[in-house]
Amino acid sequence: MTQLSAQDINVWFGQRHVLKDVNLLFPEREVTALIGPSGCGKSTFIRTLNRMHELIPSAGLGGKVLLDGVDIYEPSVDPVGVRLRVGMVFQKPNPFPTMSIKDNVLSGLKLASRKHADPNGLVETSLRRASMWNEVKDRLGDPALSLSGGQQQRLCIARSLAMDPDVLLMDEPCSALDPGSTRRIEETILELKEEMTIVIVTHNMQQAQRVSSQTAFFLAEDGNPGQVVEFGSTDQVFNQPVDLRTNDYVNGHFG
C-alpha cells in the first residue's frame, strides 16, 4: 500500500513565489492528471514529488510531501531512496546517448550500484511492460539514439520501470511525440496503473480524460503564484466543473 500526498506545497525560485498551498492526495493505483495553461506550476509541482529541484540552488519549498506517511524532505530521508520508489519520465525523450538500448534499461541498476539476479530477464520484462519488446528484441545492442522519438520515450519508461517504482511521475510525456506514439504510451499507462500510482502532467485535454481517474486544474493568474483551482474526479472536472475558470479552460475558452 503506497500513499502519496502533498500537503500545503509552496515553491519559491529565488524571490519568486511560483506555487501556493497545493494539497493533493494520490490514491494508490490510480492515474492523476495535472492540467492547466503553461506557466501555472504543474511541472514545478510534479518535480517536488521526487525532489528534482535539488539541482536548482535558489529553489525553496514549504509544506510536506508524504510517502507512506513519511515527509520525503525530512533531513533524515535520503533522496536517493525516494527516487528509487518514485520514478520519473520527462517531457523530452532523454535516453543516455552513450548507452545501448539494453544498457539504458539497466542504467538505473548501474547508476545506483545495484545487482540484479537476472538482468536479461529484467530487460525483457521492462521492455514488455513499456510495450516495445517486439520492436527492439533483435537489436538490444544498438545505440538508444537509433530509435524513433516515440520509441525513445517508451525506452525511458522501461528504464524507470526496471527500478520497480511504486509511483511513476510523467511530465508531459507525449508533448514531443506524434499521435501514434502518443496512443501507444497511453495504452501503456492504462496497463501500468494496475501496478502503480501514476501522476501525469498533460496539455492534452483528451489525454487527461482517456487515462486519468482524477484531475487537478492548476492556474496562475496575473503574476500570482500557481494554485489548484479545482481537484476532483476526471469526469466531474471535465463535465460538471464547479469553478467557472475550470469550465472555461476545459472547454478551450482560454489557455
Binding site: 527516487r83 520519473m88 524507470s160 527500478m163
Partner: peptide, 24 residues
C-alpha cells in the same frame, strides 16, 4: 535532462558524474 534522468533513477552525484557526465 540527462542529469535529471540519472538522479531520478536513484543515482548519486558521483555515479551520475562517472556514468553519465563523463561518458557523454
Amino acid at each position: 535532462d540527462l542529469i535529471s534522468a540519472s538522479l531520478a533513477l536513484g543515482a548519486g552525484r558521483w555515479s551520475t558524474f562517472r556514468r553519465v557526465i563523463l561518458p557523454t
